[in-house]
């Protein structure tokens, strides 16, 4: 019996093809059952995320399984996808790398762990998994946890939005009670606001020189639009300010903030300045209870996290290799 894996991912296939091949749960159930009826395949698990569509199977005939998977995907999408494929031990190693986030677009991301777990539970519910696959996936979950705790592969945030979220959480803890104000209705401020929104911030206020743009963005993200003349008064009530206006000079200055801070009674104010030229005067970071981060600071923190993650890859690979050996030991002894 071979452990077999075939699929496509963000490295091998463009987004427009991936989105045509992505599988919903009902389609996945049908495909899994079709595989299960194949005599050569004793069990199968399908993983479909925004970055990958993969099949893991315990099969007697890997090439036949590959061909069948190719045909199935072609039937669904009308295109012949270019698939990579691996057989034991490479297939085992591949799954362990995927579950650990080493094969992800953002190195070390942890969302994939949950997606692999979900894919396995779904296949289990459909009754199409067997003992070797069960053992393989359980081992993969253990490897992912081991890699996460023994290395720094998940350390820090790796994008401007996630760095902003991490910093906000280190200031406020839970973000559920935080109010956010966006100054300027650009793409980057929207993305950062969405990152904060994903952590459950209480409310988002959008203020822009052109009120219509503020209304449009507010509607998109479920926030509230505010006339640009009123944003200064609102500082007293918000916890996070995202500055992303096209103003040629700083609009958040020490003179403006100082009197307003007294009314905040020591509540921290986190200012994320994403604008170039900057919206916030650097000196405001010296004010008590104000934490200012500009785009350079955020990008630098993200870059450092990614560097640390890349340095950890070798350690992760060696841990994975140990586990591949253990799993193969079990498989051969079986």
């Amino acid at each position: 019996m071979n452990i077999f894996c075939a699929g496509l991912n963000h490295r091998t296939t463009s987004l427009d093809i991936r989105e045509r091949l992505a599988l919903g749960t009902s389609e996945m159930e049908q495909l899994l059952k079709r595989f299960h009826h194949n005599d050569a395949i004793s069990g199968a698990v399908m993983l479909s995320t925004c970055n990958r569509v993969e099949l893991y199977a315990a099969t007697l005939c890997p090439l036949r399984t590959l061909r069948e998977f190719q045909v199935l995907l072609q039937e669904r999408s009308g295109i012949e996808p270019l698939l990579y494929h691996h057989v034991t031990p490479a297939a085992v190693r591949h799954l362990f790398r995927v579950a650990s986030g080493l094969d992800s677009m953002v190195l070390g991301e942890t969302e994939i762990f949950g997606q692999v777990k979900k894919a396995y539970s779904f296949a289990s519910q459909c009754g199409v998994t067997t003992r070797p696959l069960h053992r393989l996936f359980q081992h993969a979950f253990r490897v992912a946890k081991h890699v996460r705790t023994e290395t720094q592969i998940t350390r820090g945030a790796s994008s401007v939005g996630s760095v902003a979220v991490e910093l906000a959480e280190k200031i406020f803890g839970e973000l559920a009670q935080c109010r956010v104000m966006i100054l300027g209705a650009g793409d980057i401020s929207e993305r950062t606001a969405r990152s904060l929104q994903s952590r459950g911030v209480r409310s988002i206020i959008v203020s822009n020189r052109h009120y219509e743009k503020a209304v449009t963005l507010a509607e998109e993200i479920g926030g509230m639009a505010l006339h640009f003349d009123h944003w200064e008064k609102t500082i007293v009530d918000v916890d996070i300010i995202i500055g992303a206006t096209g103003a040629p000079h700083a609009i958040l200055t020490v003179e403006k903030l100082k009197p307003l801070l007294k009314q905040r009674h020591g509540r921290p104010l986190f200012i994320i300045d994403l604008a170039v030229p900057r919206d916030a005067e650097p000196a405001i970071n010296q004010l008590e209870d104000v934490f200012l981060y500009d785009i350079d600071n955020l990008q630098q923190i993200a870059a450092e996290s990614l560097t640390i993650r890349r340095q950890e890859v070798v350690r992760c690979e060696s841990l994975i290799e140990e586990h591949v050996g253990k799993f193969l030991g079990w498989l051969h002894a079986k």
Binding site: R155, L167, K170, I171, F291, I301
Partner: peptide
């Protein structure tokens, strides 16, 4: 947090 360039210790400490 004020330093704008936190060290690794920052990730392990709770929120202020």
């Amino acid at each position: 947090l004020k330093s704008q360039h936190p060290s690794p210790l920052f990730h392990h400490l709770p929120s202020i």
